[in-house]
Nucleic acid binder design. Structure first.
Length: 980
DNA sequence: ATCCTCCCCTAC
DNA sequence: TAAGGTAGGGGAGGAT
């Protein structure tokens, strides 16, 4: 099933450096984004509805102890782009962290702890919540509670003027990403993919594991890694610095908390390491030369580096901008050492920077060999030497073992690979999980079956900002307790709780509207005070792959959608348990559901073809002309192209011969007696085409088909017609008053006479009439019901009721289609149908808030006297408890709006005969579409919701797996949080 | 059993 | 001052 998950967290607007230069200008300015937020702080009513989201501060993972056993400091400091340095920054802030520090043997962490406690004087561990996993409300509580001896005790003697936080810098996020080394590292791969598009996956992967050495050639893996890349690049043209201690850092303030990102070997000799605060580095090495980042140069050098690698080897797997694996097994190289030295030589010539290399039989050992080779060397570990190299190797040196795993192992008295080997695989798997245990067992023996070159498509996209995030108006700062809660690190996020919320939508989308709405909703459910936010992130995953080999328009075309391989069989075919039959696959089953007992030949669908190849176009005479005509022009045009232009002619012919679409509908539409949907009831009925909504009455008077030349404005209504009266609204409240007012007097009288009896009293009807005659008055409503449920009950109950406003949960991007279909089947005008947003199981909350808004709008229009009661039907079969809570919220939310009102009669009732889940509710709406979409033959039955796409084809563009494409979405989504 | 969701862990 | 990102893998535990 296609879907997208959004883990809320915030706003992090991804910024792809140069690639976006032009686009950024077209995007909403971050300034606007943050201005909105600040403004929001002034608006208490708005603000009260904003529930912050996500990552209230920085990830706990950054706050753990480094845990650097001195015994292999070499391993720790060997690497350059070593973000692990982020750890241990705010160790003093909570008992939680202090405890962890005490448990560890990390001398660095202990030193920092001591520094922080004594150096700044005012800093001391404070009484923190016992659990690090507080929920947001708890978090905000203690963070702002002065009595709680909270972070206010950690006040740092520093100016509160935070010029670089989100509070002040209008272009904060853009600037931030421009200067962030981690952002550079994190987004480098996408740049690489663009620059070397043919390389990833462009070759067959070769096994690098000894276990699969079926080939005659001995597997030969080379790992190449530039030496202290960030420093080397910057000083490559400054030989005078070559032997001096140099580090890359944003600041050389000897008292600052800027982080060293890379130190050259002379500097490392003084104990300077990546990740240190600059003040600590300076204390280790007072004459340390601090240089700034040069991201452009890093890119340029990385390009040269990869140009060389690709020149010598066609199997290159990029690890990062300065590190790659080569598979030289089939390269015909005789002398691998010479081969590697030639490559390294050329890298030095081309870049002015040295590279080290490791050579071995698999990726694991090659990487370990590189560690030995550094700096500026190379190392070959033949198979017979693997054992020797691993025996005394600290477990932390194995890739995949970080500080957490290391500590777990250390607690078991395991510090070296040799010791690790003494543990059975079963025990390891029991203690660490199946895969991790197996990995530990393998790696400790030098076994690694990974293949070089396995770069897959992106599986997720995201953006995070956890620095400089402060959501609070400047003028409020004074109201806070000084710098309460400021972490040790300047503008850092400190120790925080991470909150995340995610939602899965049933159909992949790249619609900004949808994403915005989802993010808003997630944000809303997060219940966080904005001033407590220290970081935010936005992630989307479960990216749906369109045919990525196709570029540009083609990939978004109906044809490509038609031929897209179907996704996995979905397990959510819930509505049809009675006919499981013996279908071999869900395709048949699905078709059986849709067909029912009808012998009408069903259109062959894409995924129904056994080979899973291109779909077969349905014969033109099986198309629902009404549906075709109602498609947007460009979509129609595309379908027409698929029929080689004959479709337009076909339709014209049909029209000229007086054959209307209804016959096609009735002949093709599968009657589905067992099905839950009522649509079939009308299939055999007479069909009228009416325009909507403003011409309703005019068209009702006309017995002829409306002007078919405006297909987009027409909707096919499959309604039982007996004398036309059935289309008459059941009360004036269903009438578009603006149209009504335009009608001649006698016509209005006619209509009023034709109106079926209103369920309410004559007085009520009179009230409606008064209302209808008042140009400034909206239609009155006598009840608002939120109807959701499975199709059978849903339709019958709604029809039997006098409910005049229908609120349906459906995906935003399904809105247009859902309205049409529902108005058709239920014989209601479109203006009577509200499509409330529904995304996944959490959609209910926002739907309810929308309902509240809807009701408030009616109240504002001074028609509240017509609201007798608001029914909210909680009829939930499942999750009743969770939903019930929401109803109470609705009630409480609405109540104030009735106060002072002449007729404050809000009651809440619970009915129990209707079964509801937001999940089902979107499903039933879809069910209607399934009837229709099938006619154009584009339903992928393996995607239960795929049929929607025929109505939404222009929106059905999969999220493209490149970070750059998420930028506008994230920008919009982020901004929408503050438009709540 | 299998899948899904919410995390954590890791690497660069 | 300072720029603590990005993405994949996997485990625990619950839902189906």
């Amino acid at each position: 099933m296609s879907s997208c998950i959004i883990v809320l967290l915030f706003s992090g607007v991804p910024y792809q450096l140069d690639q976006l230069a032009s686009e950024v200008n077209n995007q909403p300015k971050l300034s606007a984004f943050f201005t909105k937020n600040i403004a929001c702080n002034d608006d208490t009513t708005t603000c009260s509805t904003i529930q912050a989201t996500s990552r209230v501060g920085s990830p706990l993972s950054y706050s753990g102890p480094i845990g650097d056993p001195i015994s292999f400091e070499e391993w720790q400091s060997a690497e350059d782009l070593e973000p692990c340095a982020l750890q241990s920054k705010d160790l003093v802030q909570t008992n939680y962290n202090v405890d962890r520090v005490e448990e560890s043997s990390c001398s660095i962490a202990m030193q920092e702890l001591s520094d922080a406690a004594s150096g700044d004087g005012s800093q001391a561990p404070f009484s923190a919540p016992s659990s690090p996993h507080n929920d947001a409300s708890v978090c905000s509580e203690w963070m702002s509670d002065p009595v709680n001896a909270g972070p206010s005790n950690l006040k740092i003697p520093r100016s509160p003027n935070q010029q670089h936080s989100t509070l002040v810098d209008a272009n904060f996020v853009e600037n931030y990403f421009k200067h962030s080394r981690l952002h550079f590292i994190g987004t480098w791969r996408n740049r690489y993919r663009k620059r070397f598009p043919s390389s990833p996956g462009g070759f067959r992967c070769t096994s690098s594991g000894p276990s699969s050495s079926a080939t005659e050639n001995k597997t030969m893996i080379i790992h190449v890694d530039m030496d202290c890349f960030f420093v080397s690049v910057v000083i490559r043209n400054r030989p005078e610095l070559k032997d001096k201690p140099v580090a890359i850092c944003h600041s050389d303030n000897p008292r600052g908390t800027a982080e060293i990102s890379s130190a050259n070997y002379p500097a490392r000799g003084y104990g300077v390491k990546a990740g240190m605060f600059v003040r600590d580095a300076k204390s280790c090495c007072p004459h340390l030369v601090i240089l700034s980042y040069d991201f452009e140069a890093y890119e340029e050098v990385a390009d040269r580096f990869y140009n060389i690698l690709h020149k010598y080897c066609n199997k290159v797997q990029a690890v990062s901008c300065d590190e790659a694996f080569l598979d030289a097994t089939d390269s015909g190289v005789e002398d691998i050492q010479t081969f590697v030295s030639v490559i390294r030589e050329e890298i030095l010539d081309a870049t002015g920077c040295t590279a080290s290399a490791g050579i071995a039989g698999n990726m694991l050992m090659a990487r370990l060999a590189t560690r030995i080779a550094k700096p500026d060397g190379q190392c070959y570990i033949p198979a017979e030497k693997v054992e020797e190299h691993l025996c005394e190797l600290p477990v932390k040196a194995l890739p995949g073992i970080g500080h957490v795993l290391e500590e777990k192992l250390n607690r078991r008295q395991i510090t070296t690979c040799g010791q690790l080997r003494m543990i059975s695989k079963e025990t390891l798997q029991k203690d660490f999980g199946s895969k991790t245990g197996s990995m530990l067992w393998d790696y400790s023996r030098g076994i690694d079956d990974r293949l070089v070159g396995m770069i897959q498509e992106s599986k997720s996209i995201g953006a995070d900002v956890n620095w400089g995030v402060r959501f609070k108006d400047l003028k409020d700062i004074k109201k806070r307790k000084g710098d309460a809660g400021e972490p040790v690190k300047y503008l850092g996020c400190g120790v925080c709780d991470n909150l995340s919320h995610s939602v899965t939508v049933p159909l992949a989308t790249d619609s900004v509207d949808v994403l915005e709405r989802i993010v808003s909703q997630l944000f809303t459910t997060s219940h966080v005070d904005v001033e407590d936010i220290r970081g935010m992130g936005l992630q989307v995953s479960k990216l749906e792959t369109a045919d990525s080999s196709k570029q540009g328009k083609e990939r978004y075309s109906i044809r490509s959608w038609l031929t897209a391989p179907s996704t996995k069989i979905n397990n959510q075919n819930r509505s049809s348990s009675h006919e499981k039959a013996n279908s071999k696959n869900s395709v048949d089953e699905r078709q059986a559901q849709l067909q029912g007992d009808s012998s009408t030949p069903f259109i062959e669908m894409t995924a129904a073809s056994p080979s899973g190849t291109a779909g077969t176009l349905p014969p033109m005479n099986e198309l629902d002309i009404g549906v075709i005509e109602s498609l947007p022009l460009e979509v129609f045009s595309e379908i027409n192209d698929m029929y080689n232009g004959k479709l337009a002619h076909f339709i014209n012919e049909k029209r000229s011969t007086g054959v209307s679409g209804k016959e096609n509908i009735s002949s093709v539409c599968p009657a589905a007696p067992g099905e839950a949907f009522a649509a079939h009831e009308y299939n055999e009925e007479e069909i009228q085409v009416v325009s909507y909504p403003n011409k309703l009455f005019a068209d009702m008077k006309s017995e002829t088909l409306s002007d078919a030349s405006v297909p987009n404005m027409d909707v096919v209504i499959n309604a039982p017609v007996s004398g036309g009266i059935s289309l008459m609204p059941s009360s004036l409240s269903q009438v578009d008053t603006s149209v009504f007012q335009e009608l001649p007097e006698e016509l209005r009288t006619d209509i009023l006479e034709l109106l079926p009896a209103h369920r309410n009293t004559e007085a009520s009807l009179d009230a409606s009439l008064v209302c209808a005659n008042n140009q400034n008055c909206s239609p009155s409503i006598s009840s608002i019901d939120l109807w959701v449920g499975n199709p059978p009950e849903w339709i019958d109950i709604f029809k039997a009721s006098n409910c005049q406003i229908l609120c349906v949960l459906a995906e935003m991007y399904q809105r247009a289609g859902a309205k049409k279909q529902l108005s058709s089947v239920l014989q209601r005008t479109m203006s009577q149908i509200y499509i409330l947003p529904d995304v996944g199981t959490d959609g209910w909350d926002e739907a309810v808030s929308c309902l509240c808004e809807l009701i408030k709008q009616y109240l504002k229009l001074k028609i509240s006297t017509d609201i007798e009661e608001v029914y909210i039907c909680s009829c939930l079969l499942r999750r009743l408890t969770a939903r019930s809570k929401v109803f109470v919220e609705v009630y409480n939310n609405l109540l104030p709006h009735f106060q002072g009102n002449p007729s404050p009669g809000l009651t809440m009732k619970t009915k129990e005969y209707l079964l509801v889940l937001s999940y089902y509710s979107s499903r039933f709406a879809i069910a209607f579409f399934e009837q229709r979409a099938a006619y154009v033959g584009t339903v992928d039955p393996l995607k239960p919701y795929g049929c929607f796409s025929i109505f939404l084809i222009s929106l059905h563009i999969d999220i493209v797996p490149f970070a750059i494409d998420i930028v506008p979405f994230a920008m919009e989504a982020a901004a929408c949080i503050f438009r709540l």
